[in-house]
Structure formats: structure tokens, C-alpha cells
Amino acid sequence: MFEARLAQSAILKKVLEAVKDLLSEATFECSDSGIMVQAMDNAHVSLVSLNLRSDGFDKFRCDRNLSMGMNITTMTKILRCASSEDTVTLRAWDNPDNIIFIFESPSKEKLAEYEMKLINMDQEHLGIPETMYSCVVKMPSAEFARICKDLSQFGEAITIACSKEGVKFSAAGDYGNANIKLAQTAEVDKEEEAVCIDMQEPVKLTFACRYLNSFVKATPLCAQVKLSMSADVPLVCEYSIGEIGHIRYYLAPKIDD
């Protein structure tokens, strides 16, 4: 049997909103250690890696490892039926055809059950090696979302250039160009407002706005985002999910032809 309970469905609601633009379906790998998802978008340009540790759940039981293929569109619809304060329980039996989502109101007066059919999926796992990145930028997630949105008006791609002076985001198109520079913050009252740059070597990479604008749907999950970059390798854009885990997005850079 598999059963995982979160005291508040808000986290799971936000996770679904953060992946639904990129993934229409995905396999949820459930084991003693928690729930993991690794899936590429249809174009194989980006990858979502989600990790929810079992100790972050209020209750977690997984008698045997399960791979459950889920339709993300349907799952998003189901999670939208939960209030943020509702308790959410995911339940499946061994060799399941279905997964059950149970939402219980804080007063326990309302109990809703939604059953979703599982789908058979071909697993395509990418092996991602541990990488030391030339630049790691930590910055407010809302600021990153704002920059992606603002620069998307100027072109289809955003160039991120990181040096010891700071990080520069730029976009250019037929009607003009724009650039936004962020310096490392000297002193901040609140850690979540800091811009922190850890640079070994300067990096300049270009990425499609479309995907970055999908990644920033994770902004409600965490006040800070971590961008890891090295020359000629995919960007890693990471958001922590409270004390329970993280979501990482990988995005292949654009190259000059």
C-alpha cells in the first residue's frame, strides 16, 4: 500500500501549478525515501526534476516501490478542487490502476475523494551527473519572475551574463533591446531579499524565454531561486519546497549557429 499525507494541500497545489505548463504526463516514482519525478517536456529542451522526501510528509507509507504514470492535466484539475488548508492524502494499492486523492477540511466536516486512472508510460530517464557550476546565483524568486516577464517583451531569448560585478539579463529583438543588471547585495535585513553570486568563472548563456516563463510558475513555492550555470551546459533553476524537497528545472542553452 502507498499512502502519503500532507497537512495542507497548498504545497501540492503549488507543485502542480509549477509543472503543468511543461508536462502533460509524468511518472511518479514512490519509495521509502519519498516521491520523485523526472520528466522532459515534449520538445526535449527542458526537464523537470521533483523530489519530495518522505520525512517531509505528515504520514508516509510505501510498502513496495511504485511507478505511477499520472496525467498532469487531470491531477491539476483535481488539486484545484482542494482548499489550501485541506489535508491531502494520496492513496494507492499495490499494482494500482488508480490513485485516490482525499481532501479533508480543517474542521473534518467535509471529506472529498477523487479517483484518477493511472496511465502506462515509457520511462525515459536522463542521467544527470553531479556538476560543479561556474556561477551560482541566488536571488529573490519574485525578482527573477519579474525579469523574465519584462524581458520577454523584447525577444524570444534571454541572455544571462554572470561576472563578479553581478548578473546581467538581456534580451534583444526587432523593436529594441533591454538589459537588467543586478549587483550582489551588500547587506540585507531579510535573507530572502538577497542577491548572492558565487562565481568561479564568468558565464554567458542564452535561453528561450518560453521555458524560463514556465519555470517561474514555481515562484509561490519559495522566496529564493537558485540559478546554476556553466559554459555550454544546461541551466539549473532550483526552488526549495519548504522542508520537504525541491523542484529543479534543467534548460538546454541556445547556441550560435
Binding site: 522532459m40 526535449h44 525515459e124 542521467g127 531569448a157 542564452t206 538546454a252 541556445k254 547556441i255 549557429d257
Partner: peptide, 14 residues
């Protein structure tokens, strides 16, 4: 115009 890379050019299928 820069060309979009594919993720599978960087990581291998496991």
C-alpha cells in the same frame, strides 16, 4: 539567430 539545443545532447538516457 541562436539555435535551441536539445537536452539529450548533454545528458544520456539512463
Amino acid at each position: 539567430t541562436p539555435v535551441q539545443n536539445d537536452l539529450e545532447e548533454f545528458y544520456t538516457l539512463a
